[in-house]
Write a protein that binds this DNA or RNA. Structure first.
Lengths: 231, 231
DNA sequence: AAGTGGTCTAGACCACGTC
DNA sequence: ACGTGGTCTAGACCACTTT
């Protein structure tokens, strides 16, 4: 006989195996926690941990009273780590560099003002270049709400990037992140040292402290950038 | 006095509040599980669940014996849901459409063969268009390993997209997913109905059944596509 | 050696959603 | 109404890592 199951990881593996082997085909109702606990000879809490983890991974659908079913369309969930740019560069074994390009205080364009709900108040605008081995790695275009982070008014963002400074000075409660692609316009092309029209991978992020927007940033990665993760 | 904490979510909120309020600044060692359990008047398992969740979110660093610390660089973790294209379109309230453009069996280009480790064996190649309200939504370019999924040889992929068919017929054990940006070449531009050179958001995925590659797909989204998620 | 998180157990009560 | 998952508890043992 095969080795007995003792841990929640063991239960998870066995359940995963049965799904994969089509013992429990897509859409099938699987036994409830109590029955599985009895079958495997473990406590229900152990089964719960295993099934809950698989549900979070999108492999199972769980509903009270209705029971647990194998997902029909296993929605792939990709978890991306978005580190500070400096660490991202260093993780690739390259030397990190930083150069602030501009720092002004001005009313933002309409889309930024709308997204941040700051009305017509002027915001801090920072534009900076992040380098890997002295070559452009990513361009940061950021708007900061000084009404929330007053200390930002006294920070030149020359020795330290806003990317990093904000992490230490402006904790956020929640936020939104987006990924898209855009053609480099003339400014981005000049700053990143690529051709106008090059396809750039863009990450944008909007963070909040409760009901107040802290900052909105767009990171334009140099051409060829690829963000990856496991499934 | 404020309301008593009873649930692991409650513990998590309180811990989050203390971090946010700098009661526990970045890098600080926080009390151990037993002490927190006593303070909050809950069982240790409840505290464990709360702290474990925060650690998974990147807000805490936990190590046996060393204890639990507030993360210095809270690595933002963004979890993206990658649904089937049909559901993605329907979720936007649009009518889904599908059109297969090509289906051949041929040796793949070197980069595909290398990534899939299929040597010089011929693979199934499918190219198809996904539509939203009759307008191009995304272009699918896929290579399937018929050595693993023999049934794919008998499927024309006309009535159902490979995107969806494979989910039902080819469970995978693990995979890799990547995001990038690319300029539309002439074929993509023609198929998506956009200008040559347009910046396209590209999702690529490689899935495995244990040690054998099942399929490799690139999804070219029509210009302007943005993938988003909360933080 | 000792402290900390990681996990398991057995039992209990509860919330929710379906029937 | 009632079955299912969601969670809490109190206690225990274990694994890992640092001291």
């Amino acid at each position: 006989m095969t080795e007995a199951i003792r841990t929640w990881q063991g239960v998870m593996e066995e359940v995963r195996r049965r799904i994969h082997a089509r013992d429990w085909p897509p859409g099938a109702l699987i036994p409830n926690e109590a029955d599985l606990a009895a079958e495997f000879g473990v406590a229900r809490a152990t089964v719960n941990r295993a099934l809950r983890t698989l549900a979070e991974a999108g492999l199972l659908d769980r509903r009270r009273k209705a029971g647990t079913r194998v997902a029909l369309q296993p929605v792939a969930k990709a978890t991306l780590d978005i580190p500070v740019l400096r660490l991202e560069v260093e993780a690739r074994g390259k030397e990190y560099g930083y150069r602030r390009l501009a720092r002004t205080e001005a009313p933002p364009p309409d889309d930024i003002a709308t997204a941040m709900q700051t009305g017509d108040a002027p915001l801090l605008h920072i534009r900076a270049l992040h380098l890997a081995d002295d070559r452009p790695y990513a361009l940061e275009d950021r708007w900061i709400n000084p009404g929330v982070i007053a200390a930002a008014r006294d920070e030149p963002f020359i020795g330290i990037s806003a990317n990093e400074w904000l992490l230490a000075h402006a904790p956020y409660t929640h936020g939104e992140i987006g990924f898209s692609a855009t053609n480099a316009r003339a400014p981005e092309a000049a700053e990143l040292g690529c051709a106008t029209g090059s396809a750039l991978f863009v990450l944008d992020r909007l963070t909040w402290d409760h009901a107040r927007a802290i900052t909105r940033v767009a990171i334009f990665y140099a051409p060829g950038h690829r963000m990856r993760t496991g499934l």
